[in-house]
Computed example of a mutant assay.
Amino acid sequence: MNFFSSTFKLGILGGGQLGKMLLYDTRKFDIYTSVLDASIDAPCKVACNEFHLGDLMDYDAVYNFGKHVDVLTFEIENVNTDALEALEKEGVKVYPSSKTLRVIQNKAKQKLFYRDHDIPTADFSRFAYSSEILDAIHNGGLEFPFVWKSAQFGYDGTGVKIIRTEADLEGLPNVECIAEDMIPFKNELAVIVARNNQGEVSTYPVVEMEFHPEANQVEYVICPARIDEKVAKKAIDVALKVSKAFNHVGLLAVEMFQTKEDNILVNEVAPRPHNSGHHTIESSYTSQFEQHLRAILNLPLGKTDSKVGGIMVNLVGAEGYTGNVIYQNIEDIMKMPGVTPHIYGKKQTRPFRKMGHVTIVNEDLNEARKIAEEVKNTIKVISQ
């Protein structure tokens, strides 16, 4: 099939920043795109060929949208998988598949998948409702501390809470969830794996992630991770094992813990371009977004090596500000060497909302980290 400057149509479910960055590369290749999103102000709207309004969890909206595209992909997991399955049966190529997505959408199913496929992960207990946790504690089946995670619809730090006492259970939504052992780890790592329909596989270098202590969001992504080569190889091997188990097509971002004993435990995965790969736009031979396109269109995968050390800084809404966004001091960070800001196109800011990111590239990773800190302390995402 001819994808370039042709009648081929790529459908994208979700119109957020990941889709917008994916569109950088569809426009580069002149691939015709159609996007479905529930917001009239979705960032993708400015860059796609067609934009359609619709709820991604609504069967009819997803099914009717998907009938008119040749290949369907997504930039967010919260989509109607029944509609995806129906489209697959009618011949629409959906990547990653509805089968893969069904497992990943639910953290409890995801954890059971790891257990069934002998993939190392933290021990956990599964609950139909959060209200059952207290009984498990009183009966000796669960001990403090642990990490509570909602089985579905968690993102960017929501749906996750560290539970140290019974008081921490107050106010939790009474939903299906897991209670996961707290892991004393050295580092949080991630590996992005790309796989096309022919089974060709490639991995990006291991990255290290530094998190905001309150928002539970990534503040910095550092590539390459500052870890021993043996640990990096172990992380890549685990990521490849996860990828093989899912047999996905497209990207799979595998987030992991490096324990104090240098073991690797899988935390969770995302079957799409991911925050941990944003640096690849500037620092890699092939960006994660181009690689996702290559994979889902069954094209040869691109070179994943880094051209230079890269660090990504998330730009999130400052606490105490809600309303029309202002990027304060953005001109100052643009004076710094190797700094490239990416603004996602969201007109309204609120505390901790992802509004953009900044990439810092430098041949000296330590120098890049210093500049990243300066960037973080200089630019402020506030409101009018």
Rank of each mutant, 00 (worst) to 15 (best):
R195I: 08
R164P: 15
T121A: 14
Q328M: 13
V249C: 14
E200G: 05
I311Q: 01
G66R: 04
F144C: 13
H278L: 00
A179W: 03
K380Q: 15
N275H: 08
K93I: 14
V69T: 07
G171P: 06
L87G: 10
T100M: 09
I222G: 10
F153Q: 15
L13Y: 12
A225E: 02
L18A: 04
G16P: 13
H274R: 00
V160M: 12
S243V: 05
E200D: 15
Q288A: 02
T26M: 04
A190D: 14
L56G: 01
V316R: 13
Q17R: 05
E85L: 06
L23C: 14
P145L: 10
K230P: 13
S98H: 08
I326N: 13
I371Y: 08
E261F: 08
S125I: 11
P351A: 06
V313E: 09
V238D: 08
K28P: 10
R102H: 03
L84K: 04
L84C: 12
D37M: 06
V325R: 08
L252R: 03
I379D: 00
T33R: 02
K347C: 11
M209F: 11
F127C: 02
L56N: 00
N247Q: 09
Y24Q: 12
L87E: 06
N314R: 09
P273N: 02
K111G: 07
V103R: 04
Y220F: 15
I76G: 04
P224K: 00
F144V: 08
N106F: 11
G140F: 12
F246A: 04
E214F: 12
I296R: 08
F127V: 02
I76T: 07
S243D: 07
E319T: 14
S283C: 13
Q105A: 08
S383I: 03
I227P: 09
I31W: 01
E255K: 01
I12G: 10
A270W: 08
N247P: 10
S34E: 14
T73Y: 03
F185S: 09
L87N: 05
V35L: 04
Q110L: 04
E229R: 12
F246S: 11
Y24I: 05
V46Y: 12
P271S: 00
I31P: 02
F211R: 04
S131F: 02
E219D: 15
V381S: 02
I371W: 07
T165S: 13
T73A: 02
V191C: 03
N314E: 09
F65M: 08
S150G: 13
F4V: 14
K347Y: 15
L172Q: 09
F113D: 00
F4Q: 11
P300T: 04
V249R: 01
A128H: 11
F74Y: 07
V218D: 11
P271Q: 00
A122V: 03
V221H: 03
E374P: 11
L53M: 11
N216A: 09
F3G: 10
K89M: 10
D262E: 06
L10D: 01
I31M: 05
D55K: 05
S34C: 15
V325S: 06
K376W: 02
S283K: 02
L56V: 02
Y321E: 10
T165F: 06
V308W: 03
R294N: 04
V254I: 04
V339R: 06
K303T: 11
Q328L: 15
G310Q: 12
